[in-house]
Design a protein around this nucleic acid. Structure first.
Lengths: 210, 210
DNA sequence: GTCTATAGGTTGATAGAC
DNA sequence: GTCTATCAACCTATAGAC
């Protein structure tokens, strides 16, 4: 949130603050929030425990910034996906994989916050304010599908946003599976989902019944 | 796991054990796992703290049983859904709502375990052994769709399991949204999803393009 | 089976020197 | 900004009486 471009006066920071945040995020993803003690964070960051409190005031303050940091990449999701072009299957593949990648980073952070009701409510408020959540992906894909629908590339009798929510949800489930340490292969591969969905979206409908 | 039907000898249990488990599960869902201390559990259950250790050996033992208890209703999912009949929309609605209801109870438990890497791995092993997870719902719905497909009620050019995973995932996302204390209405309603999906599954395909 | 009392250990946070 | 030293609070778990 700070202005990185402005020239700084005085002694440049030693990087302790960033090291602490990085250590906290690593610990959060690797060992879970209950093992994220200020002691461990300090040890991994290579600073003393008091530094943690100097920079972030208290444990909750550190967690708050770690959550925001962990959810950050979501902002760049739209550009990364490059959700445009006539090749629908390609768009679905690109966007789907991008969502999945992002969620595999973000879900551990989201679930970690649920360990404490207060933390969870605080994070939820932050997400509501910044309009974060699965609906973001749904909206991005929904707009693309609506555009294709206007161009007659998608059948007219479906709700683009509803279909988008199905696809984004599929990616979420896959990322969820991975986050919960369950085997992804117990679910059908994303390519199969894209296959079927693409056919069902075709304007002419499927082949005539046998 | 104990045989409830067998007649018991001796003094009947006072119900302390059950009260403790119930209190633990409540605390888990209401306030998160980090506030689930043996003190609080004992207080809410109306017993002494030592009773908790007498019945469950240690905190981990209590959590293990609470997790199993919280995931229990999944077993009854198939029967509850009554996944059969020619009215596809009705089946989707019933099953979808059942999955959503179940997950809104189970997700808090699943996410709670993620607070500690060891706990998470232990729960994951339990779920793998007992074949639990989102794929269960996918399989149930997939079989129903495959059956409809054989009967010519669903277009032949789609993968039933892939479509099933999309629908089940939609329910999971909705439950996830609720668990994370985010507004469900930022997602399209389930009825809209069922609407579009049902049309896309129709054997003849959609109406001819304008 | 349930209780009281307490040991033993970990954690978040502060004070004050450098 | 960073450190060492320290504290008060809290938690899990055990011992032993009833």
């Amino acid at each position: 949130m700070a202005d990185v471009t402005a020239k700084r006066r005085g002694r440049p920071p030693a990087g302790g603050r960033e090291a602490i945040l990085k250590a906290a995020l690593e610990l959060l993803r690797e060992r879970g929030i209950s093992r994220l003690t200020t002691r461990e964070v300090a040890a991994r960051a290579g600073v003393s425990e008091a530094s943690v409190f100097y920079h972030y005031r208290d444990r909750a303050g550190l967690l708050r910034e770690a959550f925001a940091e962990g959810l950050g990449p979501l902002v760049a999701l739209k550009d990364a996906g490059a959700v445009s072009g006539p090749d629908r299957r390609k768009v679905l593949k690109r966007l789907g994989e991008a969502i999945e990648r992002f969620l595999e980073q973000a879900l551990p952070v989201l679930t970690a916050a649920q360990s404490d009701a207060e933390l969870a409510e605080e994070l939820a408020a932050y997400m509501r304010e910044n309009d974060l959540g699965p609906h973001r992906g749904v909206r991005i894909l929904g707009e693309y599908l609506a555009e294709q629908q206007r161009d007659g590339l998608i059948r007219a009798d479906i709700d683009p946003e509803a279909v988008a929510s199905m696809f984004v949800s599929t990616c979420l489930t896959r990322a969820f599976q991975a986050t919960m340490r369950l085997p992804k292969r117990s679910l059908p591969p994303l390519s199969a989902v894209i296959d079927s969905l693409d056919r069902m979206l075709e304007p002419g409908g499927g082949p005539p019944p046998v």
